[in-house]
């Protein structure tokens, strides 16, 4: 992403923002609430368009794409939304099968087979397949959303606040899951997060969004040593400091 500028009316959340995502890495996007993390993610996956600037996705200029071109790229991206956004009227298995049904011409039997595998991959029990999203706990909900995002075996996985609303144990398990899947499937993962633990644990690289641009990128350890006031506040604040210590000293 180059020179991104996003404005809503008179307020601009991004100004001349650059961000690179390397293949095969887990990039965490952090920053204060309302600094435009979700918007940036949405721009990355072609759901929203920046006011100005270029988005280069898999080597293609997003602005030049027509709708079918954009759809072709979207097949290679899996997304989970902040609130899950599972289709409530469909069972979990049907939810996972939706992208496969819409985007491919695989026979129904095979789609069911693949959907069940994705369900197992994200660590859901098989009997969750026939449940409706409203019958799932928060953690299972997140996992089901992840399974749907993985349905098409995307190259790029975009997770908007994957750990929000989970207890520490559940969030930790989800972190492990993301790490494990990323390792096994060779995914590129971009996630926005508030969770300091998952930041230290999962992210290969962290991009800090503040003052309307990417203030810094680097490993969690690098960023925690930086001296910009925003980064200090984030990493050396009462909550951040404890985490940094814990992770730096084993």
């Amino acid at each position: 992403m180059r020179g991104i500028r996003t404005c809503f009316g008179a307020t601009c959340v991004h100004e001349d923002l650059d961000l690179d995502v390397h293949p095969g890495e887990i990039l965490a996007l952090v920053g204060a609430s309302g600094c435009g993390k979700s918007v940036l993610l949405r721009e990355m996956i072609l759901l929203a368009h920046p006011t100005a600037g270029r988005v280069l996705l898999f080597g293609e200029e997003a602005q030049d794409l027509d709708e079918s071109g954009a759809n072709r790229l979207r097949q290679r991206i899996g997304i989970t939304f902040q609130h899950g956004a599972l289709f409530n009227s469909l069972t979990v298995a049907e939810n996972i099968a939706v992208p496969l049904k819409e985007q491919t011409r695989l026979p129904a039997r095979q789609i069911r087979d693949i959907a069940m595998l994705k369900l197992l991959l994200v660590g859901l029990p098989p009997d969750a397949a026939s449940k409706y999203p409203s019958q799932l706990s928060g953690g299972m909900h997140k996992r089901a959303a992840l399974a749907r995002a993985l349905a098409m075996d995307p190259d790029l996985l975009v997770l908007d606040e994957p750990g929000t609303g989970l207890d520490p144990v559940g969030a930790g398990a989800l972190d492990d899951l993301i790490l494990g899947l990323q390792g096994a499937l060779g995914l590129t993962v971009v996630m926005s997060t508030h969770d300091l633990d998952s930041l230290w644990r999962v992210a290969h690289r962290v991009a800090f969004l503040g003052r309307r641009r990417i203030l810094a990128t680097g490993t969690p350890a690098e960023l925690s040593a930086r001296e910009e006031p925003e980064l200090m506040a984030f990493f050396q604040g009462p909550r951040g400091a404890a985490r940094s210590r814990a992770w730096n000293h084993g």
Binding site: M1, D20, V21, H22, P23, L56, L57, F58, G59, E60, R72, L73, R76, D155, L156, T188
Partner: peptide, 10 residues
């Protein structure tokens, strides 16, 4: 290169 994921896959 950075920001280019697996070029030419398509």
């Amino acid at each position: 290169p950075p920001e280019v994921l697996d070029p030419g896959h398509g």
